[in-house]
């Protein structure tokens, strides 16, 4: 149900038209609004926001498509996180960087230096960049979606 809502929204994106003969990446952002109906049941809706306020939970969707005639090899999608967004999670386990894009790894494998010289395990809020590095080429005509979530700081 919810998937259907999101996909409908995604399909109705005003995002740029995918170039007919190119590899393209479309970026869209939705805000999750939690409302409680008369029966006290919580409902989550995804809206395309023009404005947000701190604490809003955002869903970032990256829509990639290889509209060229040849497979796209070594396909890597990178999204630097806006400063005002605190990363929370992603639908798959992308590579992340917690140091501005210098080093990359799974979040669970990364650490952050503390002022006293020791290191602690990296937390979602430490993430500065997110990256998906595809193992297989994107075939001609192929595509898909990538997704991650964050909160407006």
């Amino acid at each position: 149900m919810r998937t259907a809502i999101l996909l409908l929204l995604a399909a109705g994106l005003p995002g740029q038209a995918l170039a007919a003969d190119q590899v393209a990446l479309a970026n869209s952002v939705f805000v999750e609004r939690v409302t409680t109906d008369a029966a006290g049941k919580q409902r989550v809706s995804l809206e395309e926001p023009k404005v947000v306020t701190p604490g809003d939970r955002l869903v970032f969707v990256l829509d990639y498509r290889n509209a060229s005639a040849r497979p796209a090899e070594r396909f890597v999608v990178t999204n630097p996180l806006p400063d005002a967004i605190s990363f929370t999670d992603a639908a798959s386990s992308p590579l992340v960087s917690v140091d501005g894009g210098r080093n990359w790894g799974l979040l669970a494998d990364l650490t952050v230096a503390l002022p006293d010289g020791s290191r602690r395990a990296a937390q979602p809020a430490d993430v500065t960049h997110i990256r998906w590095a595809f193992q297989k080429p994107i075939p001609a005509g192929g595509g898909g979606k990538l997704m991650f979530r964050g909160v407006v700081k």
């Binding site: 149900m1 919810r2 998937t3 999101l6 996909l7 090899e73 070594r74 396909f75 890597v76 639908a91 798959s92 386990s93 992308p94 590579l95 080093n103 990359w104 790894g105 494998d109 990364l110 990256r131 998906w132 590095a133 595809f134 193992q135 898909g144 979606k145 990538l146 997704m147």
Partner: peptide, 20 residues
């Protein structure tokens, strides 16, 4: 830490992904 392996181990998500 590892450098991002281009064409590395990450398996991208294919639609439909588990929004619910």
């Amino acid at each position: 830490m590892v450098k991002a392996p281009v064409g590395g181990a990450q398996r991208p998500l294919r639609t439909p992904f588990p929004y619910s």
